[in-house]
Simulated assay, not measured.
Amino acid sequence: MIDFELVDLARGLVRDRFPHLRAAWLGGSFVSETATPTSDLDLTVLLPGPPAPYRESLRYEGYPVEVFVQTEQSLSHFCDKGLETRRPTMIRLVGESIILADHDGTGASWQRRCLDWLRTGPEPLSQAEVDARRYRITDLLDDLRGAQDQDRIGMIGSGLLESSADLLLSGSKRWVGGGKALVTELERMDKETGSRWLDDLLGATRSAWTGDPGPIAKVSEQILDQFGGPLFEGFRAEARIPTAYS
């Protein structure tokens, strides 16, 4: 249940610190109702111009707060970056939010725009992108087969968790993430499709850290098989060298 006292606190913060704001949104775990005792308030504030853009961590009336202060140009940049990388951090912070202030309509319009992106999903992977992910997982599986000690098996297993989940999600035209955001995206997929990928991947990775490579190898191979199987021979990736070094 959303804590509306915290919503009022967030509204007071943006009113006190940003008197010339255009819009502000409260997003993150307090809105998705996944907050823990150590969670901070995630605020995005839209200003007409400088001193934005910047990010600031602070405490307000005892609560930890992360403030992402944007202009329309910088907000567009970070949303475009999220679309490109399939990691919609800023898009979720604005789209899945409570509007705290909206002085010129941009609060509602940006929220609608971000929600549309979230519902549509990212662009499908190109074949080259699929192949690069297949190669990465194949390479990790080869490393896993040769690993002799528990620590290396655990580390490779963690790499397979992230790489396999990335292929599974992005290859299914879904959003991806890192750390706890990856768990959230897998949870969303499992809830919507009735799958058990999160439990399978996490359980297999735990086994890897005990020195048992079998479960994570099996789950990773199952995901690989959905997208063409292992890839090593014949894989080629063109190098892109910055102009300054060419």
Rank of each mutant, 00 (worst) to 15 (best):
L43A: 11
T44R: 02
V45I: 14
L46V: 06
P48R: 09
G49K: 10
G49A: 15
G49S: 11
P50M: 05
A52P: 01
A52L: 10
A52Y: 06
A52K: 07
P53D: 12
Y54G: 04
Y54F: 15
E56A: 12
S57T: 10
S57F: 09
S57W: 10
S57A: 11
L58V: 02
L58I: 06
Y60K: 01
E61A: 13
G62Q: 01
G62M: 01
Y63L: 08
P64L: 06
P64N: 06
V65K: 01
E66D: 15
E66C: 03
E66N: 13
V69D: 07
Q70F: 13
Q70K: 12
T71I: 10
T71A: 09
T71D: 11
E72S: 12
S74D: 15
S74G: 10
S74W: 13
L75C: 09
S76V: 00
H77D: 14
F78L: 14
C79W: 09
G82I: 04
G82P: 05
L83V: 14
R86G: 14
R86H: 13
R86Q: 09
R87M: 13
P88L: 03
P88T: 02
T89E: 00
R92Q: 13
R92M: 14
L93Q: 05
V94D: 13
V94M: 09
V94R: 00
E96R: 14
E96N: 12
E96L: 10
E96V: 11
S97L: 05
S97D: 12
I98R: 12
I99C: 06
I99V: 15
L100T: 03
A101K: 04
A101L: 07
A101G: 00
A101N: 00
H103L: 11
D104K: 08
D104S: 06
D104R: 08
D104T: 04
G105S: 08
G107F: 00
G107S: 08
G107Q: 05
G107H: 08
G107R: 07
G107V: 05
S109T: 15
S109A: 14
S109R: 15
W110I: 10
W110V: 02
W110T: 02
Q111H: 06
Q111C: 00
Q111L: 08
Q111W: 03
R113V: 02
R113F: 15
C114N: 11
D116Q: 14
R119S: 10
